[in-house]
Design a protein around this nucleic acid. Structure first.
Lengths: 149, 149
DNA sequence: TGAAAACATTTGTTTAAACGAATATCTTCA
DNA sequence: TGAAGATATTCGTTTAAACAAATGTTTTCA
């Protein structure tokens, strides 16, 4: 359904504003969809995001700051987010002996297993809502890049 | 800057996944930008969104449920959001005498004035980041519509 | 009519987000 | 060397989000 119908608004200040409203709407739509999938695993999107970043570096340890730098949203409280990940046994944490200011993170085995368990469900969800061709998806991504300037 | 560089990831499961990561990233980018603008006025994006919806119907009263239906994100706690708007004097609230279950909302004069004061700043911000042509913005919006199916 | 179902919003409670200030460590350079 | 500044993370506190259950009202239909 088009954004005009969804938010019952036909006039927009500009095409750009319409696109941004659609961006916000579509983001929340995606979050709502993903939440259904994430909930049974007791994990939030942000936590999942951090686990995936750590998996990308496994078996290396990664400083908290490096994780923060590449997160999709810059959670200002990564400390307590990591507390929760550690409590669940999904990550390991230790201070860097070379630079004792830094805290190093590494995904633990249960964390890797969790991601593996979730992956097929995510794939399936993506497949079910595959309304864009590969070219269109690339184009969408390019336009978002361009929007940010 | 392209999303690949921003999140330091070159391989993606699919173009769709890349587009969705970009959607999430760009949404947060936008929220961060808007927050700077909104903060001096003591208003959040959600609250602003509600005020704009009410302005679209002014001087009519609108049921809370109707507002919820067209919100960009379906805040489950519109009651307390409206409490805050009312405390600041931006909206009026009364129960519908024809259907006493419903609560009706209307934007108040200070609310209208607030929006008028903020509008030029928003326009300016939009103008400054006008990296998309009108056609590109339309295309972006269409692709987002299509993504949702 | 009047009991059950549907509806619209509110409230209670747990949990997490937001923000600034604080702590601890390292680097620089007079 | 050692004081000032920069860096990396953590903590304290206020505020809001999330979710389920509850309240009050209207509609339906036996």
């Amino acid at each position: 359904m088009k954004i005009e119908e969804l938010i019952k608004q036909t006039k927009f200040v500009s095409p750009l504003q319409k696109a941004i409203l659609n961006l916000i709407y579509t983001y929340h739509w995606h979050v709502d969809q993903a939440a259904v999938l994430f909930k049974p695993f007791g994990i939030t999107m942000q936590q999942f995001n951090v686990l995936r970043i750590l998996r990308g570096k496994h078996p290396e340890f990664v400083p908290v700051g490096d994780v923060k730098a590449v997160m999709l949203d810059k959670n200002p409280d990564l400390t307590r987010l990591c507390d929760r990940l550690q409590e669940k046994g999904w990550i390991e944490r230790e201070t860097n002996s070379c630079n004792r200011r830094q805290v190093l993170l590494r995904i633990a085995k249960p964390g890797l297993e969790l991601l593996e368990k979730m992956e097929p469900l995510l794939q399936q969800q993506a497949a079910e809502m595959n309304h864009l061709s590969a070219e269109e998806a690339e184009l969408l991504s390019d336009l978002l890049d361009k929007l940010r300037g």
